[in-house]
């Protein structure tokens, strides 16, 4: 399974970005092959409205099974749920720490959006 992390960097040491909709990049980590790729989400950073929806579309099309991020707004959450992608909420500082926490099974899935829309 592939798993996505919202981030501002391009390595596993990069910080986990707490904003799902306006995260500059996503790291897609393949758990079976221990391999990752980076996708750019900066186009979205400049969106006035619907950044969460667009990020969620990007994630849904990338074929991941779940996303680990800080906070997720209501619109993005609806799209992710419709696409069958689980959302994990995480306060870890880096992508590597978040991945470790995911492997250890200590992350919790969100069952609803945890912030209002327009969260920057």
């Amino acid at each position: 399974m592939k798993i996505a992390f919202s981030t501002s960097g391009e390595t596993l040491e990069a910080p986990l970005d707490s904003r799902f909709g306006r995260a500059p990049k996503f790291i897609l980590y393949d758990l079976e092959r221990d391999y990752f790729e980076v996708i750019d989400n900066r186009q979205n950073l400049n969106t006035s409205q619907g950044a969460g929806i667009q990020s969620a579309e990007t994630i849904a099309r990338s074929g991941v099974g779940c996303i680990v991020t800080g906070h997720c707004g209501p619109k993005a959450f609806r799209v992710l749920s419709a696409a069958g992608i689980a959302v994990y909420n995480c306060g870890e500082a880096t992508v590597a720490d978040a991945l470790k926490a995911f492997r250890e099974g200590t992350l919790k899935t969100m069952d609803s959006a945890d912030v209002e829309g327009h969260w920057i």
């Binding site: 409205q49 619907g50 929806i53 969620a56 849904a60 419709a82």
Partner: peptide, 9 residues
Amino acid sequence: FHAIVSFGT
């Protein structure tokens, strides 16, 4: 306007 989104459903 991202007002409608579909993924095979």
